[in-house]
Amino acid sequence: MHIPDGFLDTKTAAVTMGLAAAGVGWAAHSVRKTLPPRKVPLLGVTAAFIFAAQMLNFPIAGGTSGHLLGGMLAAVLLGPSAGVLVLASVLIIQCLLFADGGLLALGANIFNMGIVGTAGAYGIYWLVRRRAKGLQGQLMAAAFASWCAVVIASTSCAAQLALSGTVRWGIAFPAMAGVHMLIGVGEAIITTLVLATIAATRPDLLREEARAAGAPRYRGVIVYGLLIAIGLALLISPFASPWPDGLERVAGKLDFMGKAALHPLVRAPLPDYVIPGIGSPVVATALAGAIGTIVMFVFAVILARVVTRRTMAGDRESAAVR
């Protein structure tokens, strides 16, 4: 989901850079006020931990493998604001040392994965967590929220690509959201397994979080909520309106970039994309997303129950690691 440089236009890069700066600034302010100084090294080391954890691959079918993204994990372990800072650090280091993810696109990447996928998803986690008790409830909330984190972050990413005139919304959204609905399942499973292990070895680390998150900080909810709402409104609203509108924007942009030669190519196949009766791929993807959310919620409940039972039973072949 790292957007490389050269894929965003100046307008999108500038807007997302501003949003990311505001979000990271708020996170730093809030962490400075609430975090005891002895925890500051923990933030840096956790950022390195997320980076190292991303290098451990999980086998998926057919020789492919996936890895942890870690936004939700960091937010559950340290709280949303610290999670935003951790993810921002990971993305900055990946960009500046490994050239993974662009420098001009850094704002967009921090907004997608660091703010929408961490603070935003933490809001979902917190809402579900309030109504579910115990370790099982916590794991279930984390599983569900980490799936949501991956899906909404990828949607935001698709919107940025579309707004930049790089990939049309009608292609970017179904492709990105579709793939990430599957990747999100992996992320949910890994996050749950990791949290279960921590709960089994150092339950105090998770309880500390629960105490910190017990009292909701309404100002944080307002600031992150506002940032994400503004961001999504700016990024997605051009496409949420009836389909031809979004297309015209992109067509206009292509026109500007590629001069008149591209013109007939852009306009001609349009009707093919709106299939009567079935609707556009955008509607289909949104529908799939809605169904996927419900399925994922049920899956999260089952996953949490299975993992909790295993953790409680102590029947774990984990001694080898220690």
Binding site: V45, T46, L56, I190, L193, I198
Partner: peptide, 25 residues
Amino acid sequence: HMWRARGDVIGRLFVRSTERAERIY
């Protein structure tokens, strides 16, 4: 089994990171 093992490794890596952070502090 491999997934659970990986989850274990990452979870314990976090526990070790926390302990390391305390020493660093």
